[in-house]
Design a protein around this nucleic acid. Structure first.
Lengths: 201, 201
DNA sequence: GCATAACGCAACACGGAGTTGCGATGGAAT
DNA sequence: ATTCCATCGCAACTCCGTGTTGCGTTATGC
């Protein structure tokens, strides 16, 4: 994501702190001002750093934003193991809703969707985040298949897609409220579809 | 959406042509350059009109874009009546996919989602477009209920949501391809969920 | 044909994206 | 502790787009 200090074999003691401060300031600015209104000068001021320093480490505004967001889409949303698929799915859906409606989550979603079409790096970060969560949630479905709760051959990715699709629809398209009851209904439908063997092909 | 010539009782003969030319140019520019890169000066040049003329009719860049997009989200996607719910849903899903993957559709979607959080007018246009399509698709489900294909009490909106949710997920989040087979699978799942009575409350 | 609303035009202020050159500073090795 | 060099601060700059203003010029409706 960065670029400038490419061939680095030298003092990185100061650089680390600056990098962290700038990325943290970028995330704060993203939460408050939003993607479109974020200015490099404000970020630099909030990080206690000069504008040129930012431009020395990142090529442009987009790289900075992509870098800041990419760091934040890691270890969220714990993977449950309650012993039953429906309650696992419910737990996943509720955790996702909590994340998506938090300040951080909304900022990340807004950023990722803002220019996903125009900027390939953002589109890539977007699908990478989704694929990552899909991969981490896979065991939930696999365990259910081993328990015989759902037919063998059920595609884990399709179950998760079924689970989050109505949540994303409300978040991104209709603007309807997204809360626990909505999460629970989504979990219930996804579970029944999986149990009915609709998701194996 | 506009604003300036508010109290108008006078010559609007020229104004109409200018307005149409500017909005058409805005849509072309939106398709080619995208939301973020759209500049008022380019729009004005393409419309054969001066920049100040644009600013006299629209307060700012956002109003212009919202206005241009709002005009284009009308009469799309014909409502089918094949006599069976599943094929009606399939027809709806295919038409939506065709629209969403066209130049126009992608431009509209990208614009509506670009800053939906930050700009209330865009969020409003967004949900208005969805509600409008929901309303127009409602008869498809109602006819199916009258035929006894699905349980009485099935909520039409929920069927349509079930139909389009996976399509939006692929379009906006995962970036996976969206084509006819995907549309047909979505229709099949939505139909079975409705027939099973999962969507009535 | 005549009044007037709407347009064209040039010039402007303002702000943010990036860039450049140079001087100051801090961390790491000797 | 001193030296070295990467990194940072700073000021000044170009470029581009937004949005505004004043004035002269057209086209439209009557």
């Amino acid at each position: 994501m960065e670029s400038r200090p490419s061939g680095s074999k030298s003092p990185v003691g100061r650089g680390k702190k600056v990098r962290d401060a700038v990325l943290a300031a970028t995330r704060r600015e993203l939460r408050e001002a939003g993607y479109a209104a974020l200015s490099v000068e404000n970020v630099a001021r909030r990080a206690g750093v000069h504008k040129t320093t930012v431009y020395r480490r990142w090529n442009d505004r987009e790289s900075l934003i992509v870098d800041a967001v990419s760091e934040e889409i890691g270890e969220d949303i714990p993977i449950p193991d309650t012993g039953a698929l429906e309650s696992d799915l419910r737990s996943l859906a509720r955790a996702f809703v909590r994340w998506a409606t938090s300040d951080t989550g909304r900022a990340v979603l807004a950023t990722l969707l803002s220019d996903a079409v125009r900027i390939p790096e953002i589109a890539e970060a977007n699908s990478r985040m989704f694929q990552d969560r899909l991969r981490r949630a896979r065991p939930v479905v696999e365990r259910a298949a081993e328990r015989g709760e759902i037919p063998p051959g059920t595609v884990p990715g399709e179950v998760i897609r079924m689970l989050v699709a109505p949540l994303y629809l409300r978040l991104l398209v209709t603007g309807e409220p997204v809360d626990e009851p909505v999460a629970d209904r989504a979990a219930s439908v996804a579970w029944r579809a999986a149990a009915a063997g609709w998701l194996n092909g």
